[in-house]
């Protein structure tokens, strides 16, 4: 270390002709750099290191315990020929798109309604945010009961006299993913509403006054003035919702257990089932590597568009 430091100090001095006392770049803000070392190490070892380890072991035939016995792309071939995995991907796509759109739209609508200075705002805000305080396990169980045809909504409506009423998504393979969606949105909308409400409160009152003076209808002000101004808020919401979608697991386990007939499987559950249920770590690692890859494929172009090219003011 010391040798390289001397070399670095020795080389630039004659070239730049900088004053001899000028501190090295490496040593600038030394205290904060030292303070950052633990976090840098954590990030490198835990995030990057463990990710690489997982990817490497996805090329092996590890069973219950990891072992370095390489089998090439076998695990990936098996993964992509497994119907369960294909169903998982499809489910995640349906759930992801619907949850993303609905949570954002509903969150914004609720926030906009609360922002109209209504009476009892605190009460409504608490009620709507409340589901977020519950874990996904509790949410899943609550909705499992609500959607159970013998005890839940269907039974209540039928007992009110509408005998032919049918609302039974959890036992219908084609609809079960929407049963999960209802629970997911019920759980997540409150948070995005709160973030958006904070964003709306951050809008300068003068903007509203100006739009009123110009005679612009309220809905147009929201659509063309306020929403573009709230871009950072939307990005925050988007990231939070997206990470919730990718890791969708506990809700499925609690609400449907992947059923009926494996029609509500999701990738994260496939990973867990392979790693611990089937005692096949290699297969689980292959599946989680594919999840990582899909996140990267979405993330990199987005990050490039968002932060690359021009520096935003």
């Amino acid at each position: 270390m010391a040798v390289t430091d001397q070399a670095q100090t020795a080389v630039p001095r004659p070239a730049t002709g900088a004053p001899a006392r000028r501190p090295l770049r490496v040593f600038r803000n030394l205290a904060s750099k030292i303070a950052a070392i633990p976090m840098v190490l954590t990030a490198l070892v835990i995030f990057v290191g463990c990710t690489l380890w997982t990817v490497v072991y996805s090329f092996t035939r590890s069973g219950m315990l990891p072992r370095l016995q390489f089998v090439g792309l076998d695990q990936y071939e098996r993964l992509w020929s497994t119907p369960k995995w294909l169903v998982s991907i499809q489910n995640l796509a349906i759930y992801g798109i619907c949850a993303m759109v609905l949570t954002l739209v509903l969150g914004f609508l609720l926030a906009a309604l609360l922002d109209r200075k209504i009476r009892g705002e605190d009460v409504f805000r608490t009620i709507i945010l409340y589901p977020f305080a519950l874990s996904f396990i509790v949410t899943g169980l609550v909705w499992q009961w609500l959607l159970n045809p013998d005890y839940g909504i269907q039974n209540v409506v039928r007992s009110l006299g509408w005998e032919s009423f049918e609302f039974n998504p959890l036992y219908n393979p084609d609809l079960v993913i929407f049963g999960l969606l209802i629970a997911g949105i019920w759980h997540g909308t409150g948070l995005s509403m709160c973030i958006m409400l904070a964003g709306l409160r951050g809008i300068d009152e003068d903007i509203w006054k100006a739009s009123r003076v110009e005679g612009i209808p309220t809905w147009k002000t929201y659509l063309f003035v306020i929403i573009p101004m709230m871009r950072p808020v939307f990005v925050t919401c988007l990231v939070l919702i997206a990470s919730g979608i990718i890791k969708l697991y506990d809700l499925v386990v609690a609400q449907t257990g992947g059923g009926p007939g494996g029609s509500s499987e999701v990738p994260a559950k496939y990973v867990m089932d392979s790693m611990f249920g089937a005692q096949n770590l290699g297969q689980g690692f292959a599946a989680s590597s594919m999840m990582l890859l899909s996140v990267i494929i979405i993330l990199i172009p987005w990050a490039y568009l968002e932060y690359g090219g021009k520096k935003r003011v």
Partner: peptide, 19 residues
């Protein structure tokens, strides 16, 4: 059979019985 095979059979059977 290994748990791996057993899980594959389970997956198939649960799909078969429910669909």
């Amino acid at each position: 059979v290994t748990p791996d095979t057993s899980q594959q059979i389970n997956d198939l059977m649960t799909e078969f019985w429910a669909t």
